[in-house]
Design a protein around this nucleic acid. Sequence first.
DNA 1: CTCCACTAGTTGAAGAATCAACTATAACCC
DNA 2: GGGTTATAGTTGATTCTTCAACTAGTGGAG
Lengths: 152, 152
Amino acid sequence: MSEPRWLDATQQRDWRAYVDGSVRLNEIMDRDLKTRHGLSVSEYEILVRLSEAPDRRLRMAELAEHASQSRSRLSHTCSRLESKGLVRRDNCPNDKRGVFAHLTDEGYATLERAARDHVETVRNFFIDVVDPADLEAIGRAFTQVVKRIGAG
Amino acid sequence: MSEPRWLDATQQRDWRAYVDGSVRLNEIMDRDLKTRHGLSVSEYEILVRLSEAPDRRLRMAELAEHASQSRSRLSHTCSRLESKGLVRRDNCPNDKRGVFAHLTDEGYATLERAARDHVETVRNFFIDVVDPADLEAIGRAFTQVVKRIGAG
DNA sequence: CTCCACTAGTTGAAGAATCAACTATAACCC
DNA sequence: GGGTTATAGTTGATTCTTCAACTAGTGGAG
């Protein structure tokens, strides 16, 4: 095995700033959503994706993909959301294996309320503290990352 | 309550790319470390911070701070690391409430092995796919975020 | 010295994520 | 059609995280 290509000092610094910042940022988002609306970030993410889908519904596999979650995790989380009345699941007529997850009206209402606070937090701790040009750089960079990961 | 300041289209796009990318990236890192070395990212992070500390040891509270983890979580995780023989804890002489977490030799060896693979993955899915200028922007941005969060 | 408030760290229970195993259906190929 | 392989989704066990409660030691005020 050859010597690894270590990061240089600058790369190291930037990578670490990212790791550190993203963990802390996520923690803030999570706590904020949790205490104010009883939702975790990943539950919130699910509601968002459903709200944007045609008829506010998606097949489980698609939803898992959009929300960057494993199917198993989505299954469990959807069960919780369902028992809270925010999501409803029913069978897909075309494909008998399939299941649609629907956003309920209550789910939509909850999301609307949560989103108002959430956007404020996102601004407060991220958007408004980052230089707009740097924000664009972040967008570019992570788009690349997603592409790279998608490629396997 | 006033109308929230929603994100504009560009901000939205960039923020989402980040959310999506960071989740996926983290998943990759985690799985990679887990399967190849039996470590989660947060365990790895703990070992790194200890390895860099003087005498390879830190007080629990400091370690928690450096690794961006709650004390409770650190306690549990340290117990696991201890039972794997990678970390040892012992009492602080000055402050009888205090505890030092030490990186053991075995812990150091494990870290060295893990780091070689980890840096390769970090390059593969992040450093090498991101424009160097964008990487610097990320460093700048998240440094700001951390500062902002620190300020409360 | 004693009281009180604060900090360090751990613990156990409850909630959430991961992994492997499983059911059921679909799709392909001969 | 019959057999094989792949896909959709769920489940239960295990592992990890979070939260609140707790022990123990510190430090300052009077």
